[in-house]
Amino acid sequence: MGQTLADLPLRDDLREEEPYGAPQLDVPVILNVNENPYPPDEDVVADIASSVAAAARTLNRYPDREALGLRTDLAAYLGHDLTPAQVWAANGSNEVMLQILQAFGGPGRTALSFAPTYSMYPEYARDACTTWVTGRRAEDFTVDPEHALAQIEQHRPAVILLASPNNPTGTALPLEVVERICAAAPGMVVVDEAYGEFRRDGTPSALSLLPAHPRLIVTRTMSKAFAFAGGRLGYLAADPAVVDALRIVRLPYHLSAVTQAVARAALRNAGSLLARVQELRARRDETVGWLRGQGYRVADSDANFVLFGTFADRHAVWQGLLDRGVLIRETGPDGWLRVSIGTEQEMAAFRAALQEVTA
């Protein structure tokens, strides 16, 4: 009989933990992990395939460990007069976040965020042996600056993680709140803009704050708006010294030649890959309106998902939807559910299934 985890000299703080696991189920309508529902057009597929073929001819050599070509392309995409020295990339924003905690967290240091927020943040802190603490969000899921400043004064965090738009609520942060937190923070402030391209008109990016705040980091991903979740490419913008700090903790050659090639191909085709963003934003707003019309509480969303509730038994509702072929996410505060924005047909299936389940 084989050994179990209990037989291994595992770190004590990992003994009761389980791997990250949003359900991956084969159902007709998948609306649980905030993917862009539209695959790349065939001309984009052809460009990516050609780029992979070119990279394959060099696979006997290590890739460019600094990924300078990719970082140049990312800086051009972000704008704000950013240079390649201010941009860093890794295998998904997950690796970007872990590198930030490895560089600026660690034993004896604390990371702070405001709940409810992204469920992986405490796991990044745990993996980097960093103490994790959370303040609270207001009833409407906004961050109260006075509460935030009190938490900073109490805990003196080395890293503050602020998702904007926030996952799972979709709530964006006003720049004035970010600025007040930056002014008070003793360490690094990370604004996670994974869903930044889905912001409603007039909702600004924290990228504009970088020149005035050298300890600010703004992270992004290509997984969502770019329809590139399978490509695994996350990135950040920050002061060049911050990028140098992350270069210390990154693994050698952490971005493969293939990853760099396909990401650059995606950026070359940004217009095509981002073409459906406006449509998804409009469908999100329609979904918010429909859910409110059905009598649900719905969080204002600047992302490609909607958090709604509340249910006395949310798991029963989630299961009922799944039984009808619709997979959404059981996450967030008690009683709430989150639905990603899919195609018109997928959202019609979601609405019909929800009405059946709650009839």
Rank of each mutant, 00 (worst) to 15 (best):
G325R: 06
D43W: 08
G332Q: 07
Q86D: 01
E330P: 00
P186H: 00
P84D: 10
Q319G: 08
D13Y: 12
A299S: 14
R264N: 06
L236T: 11
A90P: 03
E17V: 15
D285P: 00
A67R: 04
A150K: 10
C182K: 01
L216E: 12
L233K: 02
G342S: 07
A103F: 07
A245G: 04
A225G: 13
E179D: 12
D47K: 06
V27F: 08
A266M: 11
A85W: 03
M188F: 05
D47R: 10
V178G: 02
A241N: 09
E193W: 05
C129P: 00
E139G: 08
W318S: 06
I181N: 05
M1T: 13
D7R: 10
A348P: 00
Y38G: 06
P211I: 11
P186E: 02
C129D: 14
L175C: 05
Q151C: 15
Q3F: 11
R250F: 02
L267W: 09
G170E: 09
R276N: 13
R137N: 06
R324Y: 01
A282E: 14
A103V: 07
V357W: 07
E197W: 13
P157S: 08
A183W: 02
D12M: 11
F226T: 07
P145T: 13
T110Y: 00
R126Y: 06
N34P: 01
P186W: 01
D73W: 00
A163P: 14
V27G: 07
S272F: 04
A348M: 03
L5H: 07
R250A: 12
T219S: 15
I152Y: 01
I328P: 01
T117M: 04
T343G: 04
D144H: 05
T310F: 12
R57N: 02
A270M: 06
A54M: 08
T83D: 14
P63K: 05
E286N: 04
L70N: 04
D334W: 06
P122D: 07
N91G: 10
P84F: 10
A212I: 03
A194I: 07
E66I: 02
T331K: 08
A353L: 01
A349C: 07
G325T: 06
R126Q: 08
L327F: 04
Q99E: 14
D43A: 14
A299N: 10
T134E: 15
E42H: 09
V177T: 15
L273G: 04
A163H: 13
R297Y: 06
A128W: 03
A245P: 03
